[in-house]
Amino acid sequence: MTTSSDIRADAAVVETAAVAVAVAETATETATETAADVLPSAAGTPAEAGPTDPDLAVHLLRLGDDALVLGQRLCEWITHAPTVEEDLALSNIALDLIGHARTLFTRCGRLDGSGRTEDDLAFTRSERQFTNALLTELPNGDFAVTVARQLAYTHYAVLYYEALAGCPDAELAAFGARAAKEAAFHRLHADRWTRRLGRGTPESTRRMQRGLERVWPYTRELFEEDDVVRRLAAAGTVPSPAPLHARWEQHVTGVVTGAGLTVPAPAWSAGGGRGGLHTEEFGPLIAELQSVHRQFPGGTW
């Protein structure tokens, strides 16, 4: 959770800095040292050659797609949040998620042997090649739907990234540890809003319950296990999310009931995202994401 606001300087320094903006010619610093700096990667840099692992590439692409797509949805809130504080909070969370996606994509491009960069993966794949869970692409709805989606995802993300922090691959373990810490802040944000809305006014209680009902059928997919994940887990490469479901359920049940709400018991469960079968709302999301990048073939950014 880093912004350029962490930097302080006295007035004199600022005034000098203002006139000396031309320094930008020699430095291309950014305000965002996100999780992407855990790994030595940068946009546009060809991926280094290294050992390939197609299964792990598939798995990391799924995690990266979850983060990118959810981050993209949260970006849609910015300048339309219920308070300026929420504009700030949601943009902060989006920034962390995009950071996670960058790290995961960069590693994926090395592991699948394609040498694709983070931007190749984000901006040049078609809808059917995205493998995020459907939960992350659900339209924002009202603020309660977004909070419910955040609640489900962040509790999962903390559990999974904590587990990933214990994997033998040092790079991935470091990423897992850092992402888990960030996701824990996002979880706190979701927990508090669930409680505020659940115990706020009759209208907010009704909307929050409806939000939970809306997203709950999509939560199971986060914990799905297929042959890829089973092989990776059996080899001890990365943990499977499947065994985490019981703890997830216990945690979210605590938050939901503590907010005076009822944990939904959906009669059906959505799926298909991991195989590239998405909702119809997903196409426009990807079209928007990629529009400028695709409009200028061969462009540098």
Binding site: T32, Q72, V292, W301
Partner: peptide
């Protein structure tokens, strides 16, 4: 939602934030 690279997207989110 339309920033053409993930780097620029991060920078722009941080700025608006």
């Amino acid at each position: 939602t339309r920033a053409p690279s993930l780097h620029r997207k991060s920078v722009l989110i941080a700025k608006v934030q």
